[in-house]
Structures are given as C-alpha cells and as structure tokens.
Design a protein around this nucleic acid. Sequence first.
DNA 1: TCTGGGGTCCTAGGACCC
DNA 2: TCTGGGGTCCTAGGACCC
Length: 441
Amino acid sequence: MKVLANFVQKNGARLDLSLPSERSFTYNKGVNKKQKTIFHMDGDAFFVAVEVAKNPKLRGLPVVTGEEKGIVSALSYEAKALGVHRGMPIFQLKKQFPQVIITPGDYASYARYSTKMFDIVRRYVDDVEEYSIDECFADLTGLDKPLKMSYREIAERIKKEIIEELDLSVSIGIASTKVLAKVASKWKKPNGLTIIEPENIPDFLLNTSIEKVWGIGRQTTEFLRQRGIRNAHDFISKDIEWIRDTLAEPYEVIWHELRGLSLKEIDPRPKTKYSSMQRTRSFHPATNDRVFLLSQLSKHIEDACAKARHYELSTRKFSFFLKTRNFEYFTYSLSLSSPTNAPEIFISLVQRYFDEVYRKGVMYRTTGVNLFELASTSVSQFDLFGDGDRAHKFEQIHKQIDSLEDKYGKKVVYLASTHHARNRGVKGTEVDDLDRDILFL
DNA sequence: TCTGGGGTCCTAGGACCC
DNA sequence: TCTGGGGTCCTAGGACCC
C-alpha cells in the first residue's frame, strides 16, 4: 500500500481512525457577514459540443474526439450512453462501437468558442477567471443590485445567450466558495443550474463522495477512505486540528471552503505567461531504439522552444525523461549558466546525458521534455563569458526562421536531429522531404 | 571532531487538475 | 480503464552557511 508522500511525516501514532460520531453540522454563522457569491461555469462535453456546433448534422449522434491522439479525449453524452469512456483507445473503440463518429481535435476552434463563451459571461461581470478552456469562475457578489436581477436570473441569462449565440450548453454552479461552486456545477449536467444556499451545504456534501471534491485525487481519496471518510460531509465533520495534523496545507483550505468560508480568490489575470512547458509523446509498441528516442526528444525540444519563443520566454532549467513500458520515469534535470530558448543548446545537452537515463534492455513507451522556471526573455541578459554567446546566435537565427514560418506556413524548417521523428512511418517520402525542407545543425 | 542549532535556498518528485 | 498530453502547486530533505 502506497502512502501519499505528503502524509508520510505526519501520519504517525496519533491518527484518529474512528468515524466522525456526529453527522450533524451547523453552518458557521460568523462567516455570513462576508458571504460571497461565486459562480462556476463548465462547458458540457465541450470539445464534442463544438464539433456539433460546427457541423449540426452530428447532433444526437455518438461522437468522440481525439483521433490524432489514439485515445478518446472527449465524448458526447450519446457516446457515453453506449459505454464509451474517456481514455479508451481508438482502435478498441472502432472494434467495439463501429457506429461512433470519430473526429480529430480542432484546437483552434475550441479556443475560439472558448473566448466567445467567456465574453458572454463578461457582459455581466468584469472579473472572470478562465480556469481552463471550458471552465471559468467569477465573483458575482453584490451584482444582483446594479443588474436588478437575482443571481439565478443572471446565470439563466448567460446560459440562454450561450445556447442562442454559440449553440453550446453549459452547467453553472453558484455558492459561497469556489470549491462549493464546483460541487454545484457538477450537480446537474448537462445544462444544469445549481445554487447551494448556506443552509443546504450539509445536504449537498452528504451526497458528494470525497473523490468528487476539487483538489482531492486518487491518493488522498484512498487515504481518507481508510479513515472512514467517504463523503465531503464526513470530511468537514473532522476537527480542523485533525486536518492540520494529518494532511498538508491545501487540504485545510478545502476543508474551510467546503464549510462556506471563501479562501480561494478569483484571479482574473489572463494566463498568457507559462511557468513551464512540456512536450511528451507515447508510442506503441514500446521501443528501445536509441536513435528513435533521441530524435523524439529532439522534436519535443524544438516544439517546446518554438512555443517559448512565441511567448518570449526563456529558461536555464530543463529536464527530459523516458518512461518505461511499466510506467517508471527516468528523469534527468539540467541547469544552464544563462537562460535561452534555442533548441540547439538543449539538444546538445540531451545528447550528452542521454545515457544517464537510457538502458539497453529496457523498453520505453514515452519520451518527454520540460522547460521550467520560464521567464521573459530580457534584452540585456547577454552572457559574454559563457555559453550565452553561442545561444544568442542561435536565438537570432530562430527569430528569423520564426518570422519566415509565420509568413509561409508552419514547419518549413526543422532541425536535422528531428528529421527521423517527423518522418516516422511515412515510407517513400524521405527524398521528397529532404527536397522540400531546409535542414540544419 | 563524532558534534550544536538554526536559517535559507534549491531540487526532485509527488499529487492534482482539465 | 492497462492508461494521452499539457499544465500548476506543494513539500521533504539535502546543501550550504553561520
């Protein structure tokens, strides 16, 4: 039995394994004064819904997206009703459910619809936190007066406008905290609107199993279940001291939020900056081909660096990893003397240290790279003494290539070390590709 | 020399999310 | 359910310092 690392230090002798004896919970009235009204909205089967909005002939049919990934990444309610589930391999889907319509993901469209959907919310409230492509939070506190509508009416208007203008349906939850608003929006799906009033918190939580709570995942669910905590109400019935002594700090925040005390702020700042970027790819069958694996890593670095340059971000820190057929990770982390976003620098390091993680007899299923601690590329960060000079030259070259590619379309130019990965499985195209592409390094 | 008590900074890796 | 890809945040513990 694996114990969650976060718990290791604290779950010594003093565990209380008993069930909470009292199942009644009284809402803390002191909190009422600063009662907030938090709104959470969640797109219903969003990716697939956009496919249907683009092509209404698909309405009412079992549809999934994710063809290019090889697994079902989103599915319509009709597909779900058949027994299709997220993560199901496409080949298996085809065999088992030949009637299901499979589409490739069209992320540009999803992003467009997402923006439009959030803009409708912004007609009513200025500060909207775009939590993911199909989910947002907003603080509606006090808006009922100036808008001369109840909170329910505001939510109904938003739903109506999204359906009429975008042909999409959403589910909305309203409660006094973000965690509760998430519980509410999940309560009825699709096309739901659920409001949790403070006095109804216990009822909702008694019917919310612990793993459904935002922030409580598989490991913590298992840990809590062993201690008799099955639903969210069991969780909030524990003393705060018990939570503090047994779990890590984020769970204390969840405990308060579930009781109605708002601690998680709405953060409306646009997420244009990334603090890390990663690129990974799995393949099957698993392989031990050293050249192939290196070439995959090269491609990942090239792609991640292209994105980093697009956002004008650089870093000194990066890592690469191989994942074995048995899902074991072997990671190698590196620090440079100065930040860069030139792939040549990272690739030469991967080539140098690859054998620190690679083993001859082992079969690998995934490769990946991670750039982290990304920061704005600053003009004045020349490193005249170290590797920075070399990196700087490459950065200049890439700047030129990037602007060329913007003009003439994507990926005309790529690194020679990536060639193998980009042409895998396409037979008889090698010569053509060499003709068309400019290779360097 | 077999031995402190503390602070800070960094890293690796885990858990979680969609 | 034999498991894709892209993120964020947290924390224990080591390194280093006085």
